[in-house]
Design a protein around this nucleic acid. Structure first.
Length: 598
RNA sequence: GGGGUCGUAGUUCAGUUGGUUAGAACGCCGGCCUGUCACGCCGGAGGUCGCGAGUUCGAGUCUCGUCGGCCCCGCCA
């Protein structure tokens, strides 16, 4: 029976006429040809069903003994993930055989010809939306993982978003310009990935952390409006929303105005979200940095819920409670988080929250709870009569509320703790449900941040960020109080992007470098070409960069950007599929003038 | 660099106080089956318990080290 053996054949002139997922009831009676992967085989004997899968969907193909016994027998040789071509006729299923779970469930294809184009090993995990395989296994066999429709759909969305960005930016008058990947290492900022030069012994290129300087130079060139969907590289430790290489929608405009720039971004978000059927109201809320820190304890607050921090320093001003007394004496802060109706939370729950704030560096978590018999507090033994009532009132506490309090000499620690609590409570009370999108512009960031260890200031954004006009005078006298024309776009507690109006005045740029403690010689070495460019008629300019991976992640409801990057790295920066990074041959190192230290 | 958590069949997991031959489900292989769609029924194969030491008469189980996945802190202009 040579005929009935299933053997791999060349594709030859066979061409599909359709994608599996695009066949529908209108095609009933038509002859079609399909190509795809065997999703599953259900062999009932004289009747055999194959689920055939391609990029666009799945369809059922039927092989019957009483139609073509030889063909049906050959189909018995089919296994999962074999690659096949099918010719057949589209047929309606009888009413009782309709599968309402399937997009193509009303129809099936009666096979007339079967081409085995390739066989496949049994995959290490089942390829389906409900696979139970662990993430490391999926990453090792990423090509199989990407066959799963739920995974694929993220990349379809990502493609559509990129396309929409390009179309929108074109309409807004932007040019997409490519900038170098082999570029110059610059001080400050993240750690650079370095690329050794073969031609120039001992010299290195750096992969760009962002195209920052190049896009500013394009403004000096008069390009007026630039954008790029561009890969960026930062050699820092990874997180669920951080990869060593990631993609930004990078934007720069000349003669910028907040309203113009923000309007461009808001318009873009409107269009991108519309692709997913989501209407985004604009303009987005704008709040200054100082205010969001005081109200939410974070510079990227999740605005889907209204819980806010309250100020308790004044209410504890006269306290005799030693720990709080000390904090106030050292110019520290005492702030609280009032949870309406939170009195019902158990001691056990509060213990969990105490652990949470300890992890964030606080020495403890104090609380006041409203009960039937009056207020109860963790500080009952140490507060003066009436003090708890006064504090609770200062927090706006009413019946059945719970007030959580953190005190520390360092304001940042208080903010960190209460932000962590706020997010934990928000999650617990399901305020942050999916399907809701709350945008926020955080503006007026501080210009500099003091680094205790290095005993110097660092730029909060980057050293080309313009100070606010009214703060220029403090650049050299009191850098800590200078606010910058810098802003972040925050969505649901994730920093989606950030940018600034840049410095176009050489004099101010020099003062900023001086505030950062950089000598003229250092700045000349590192930024010389850029500083020179600034002299040749630099227009006022500014821009922003948005994280495309994070945007796709939020829109697809994924918890990690790994799910929206085709070939992502693990938490330790390796690729489980290609096994990179890896050692290289000695000759390669020699050519690069590199000797290893082992 | 630090903290947490996980690692047992191809996969996901169970495995009691340290004790006989390490189990289940799914998958895989073979057989039967004309309407399946998580097909069903019968049978079968499949294990370096991540790796290495140690304790013990005896280790999947206890100890130490190490490697790897994930989450968090630091870091990320």
């Amino acid at each position: 029976m040579e005929e009935s053996k299933l053997k791999v054949v060349p594709l030859g002139s066979f061409q599909r006429t359709r994608y599996c997922g695009q066949v529908n009831a209108e095609d009933i009676g038509k002859s079609i040809r399909l190509c795809g992967w065997v999703d599953s085989v259900r062999d009932l004997g004289a009747l055999l069903f194959v689920r055939l899968r391609d990029r666009e969907g799945v369809i059922q193909v039927v092989f019957k003994s009483d139609t073509d016994e030889d063909l049906r027998r050959r189909a018995e040789g089919l296994r999962s993930e074999f690659v096949i071509g099918i010719s057949g006729v589209v047929a309606a299923r009888t009413a009782e055989n309709v599968n309402s779970q399937m997009a193509t469930g009303e129809i099936e294809v009666l096979a007339e010809e079967l081409l085995l184009l390739n066989t496949a090993e049994t995959p290490p995990f089942e390829i389906g939306d409900d696979t139970t395989a662990s993430e490391d296994l999926r990453l090792k066999y990423r090509y199989l993982d990407l066959r799963r429709p739920v995974v694929l759909k993220n990349f379809r969305l990502r493609h559509q978003l990129s396309l929409e960005v390009r179309d929108y930016m074109d309409q807004q008058g932007f040019f997409e310009i490519e900038t170098p990947f082999l570029t110059k290492s610059t001080p400050e900022g993240a750690r650079d990935f370095l690329v050794p030069s073969r031609v120039h012994e001992g010299c290195f290129y750096a992969l760009p952390q962002s195209p920052q300087i190049f896009k500013q130079i394009l403004m000096i060139s008069g390009f007026d409006r630039y954008f790029q969907i561009v890969r960026c590289f930062r050699d820092e430790d990874l997180r669920a929303d951080r990869q060593p290489e990631f993609t930004q929608i990078d934007i720069e405009i000349s003669f910028p105005h907040y309203d113009v720039l923000f309007g461009i971004i808001e318009g873009m978000m409107k269009r991108l979200f519309r692709l997913s059927g989501i209407e985004v109201p604009t303009p987005f809320l704008r709040l200054p940095y100082d205010e969001v820190m005081e109200r939410f304890g974070s510079d990227k607050p999740d605005m889907r819920f209204a819980l806010e921090l309250c100020e308790l320093g004044a209410a504890f001003q006269q306290t005799s409670f030693e720990a709080f007394r000390r904090v106030l004496d050292h110019n520290g802060r005492i702030k609280g988080l009032r949870i309406p109706g939170g009195a019902q939370y158990s001691r056990n729950q509060i213990d969990h929250w105490t652990e949470l704030v300890r992890q964030n560096g606080a020495s403890g978590l104090a609380w006041i709870r409203s009960t039937e018999g009056g207020l109860r507090s963790s500080l009952d033994k140490v507060l003066r009569p009436g003090e708890a009532e006064a504090v609770f009132q200062a927090a706006g506490g009413t019946k059945d509320d719970l007030l959580l309090m953190v005190a520390d000499a360092k304001a940042q620690k208080v903010f960190d703790c209460l932000n962590a609590l706020r997010l934990a409570v928000g999650r617990k009370e399901k305020h942050a449900e999916s399907g809701r999108y709350a945008f926020l512009w955080v503006v007026d960031f501080p210009m500099f941040e003091y680094h205790e260890e290095d005993r110097r200031f660092y730029a909060c954004h980057h050293p080309f960020t313009s100070p606010k006009d009214e703060d220029v005078a403090y650049l050299t006298t009191d850098p800590g109080r200078v606010k910058a024309k810098a802003y972040d776009l925050v969505l649901n507690g994730t920093e989606l992007g950030g940018g600034s109006i840049r410095i176009h005045d050489m004099q101010i740029q020099k003062e900023v470098f001086r505030s950062l403690g950089l000598t003229d010689q250092e700045t000349a070495e590192k930024f010389g070409f850029f500083l020179e460019a600034l002299r040749y008629g630099t227009p006022p300019h500014g821009g922003i960069a948005l994280g495309l991976d994070r945007l796709v992640m939020l829109l697809s409801g994924e918890k990690s950007i790994r799910d929206v990057i085709a070939f992502p790295k693990t938490a330790r920066g390796t690729c489980l599929m290609s096994d990179s990074p890896s050692a290289v041959r000695d000759e390669q190192l020699k050519e690069l003038h590199i000797r290893l230290d082992h």
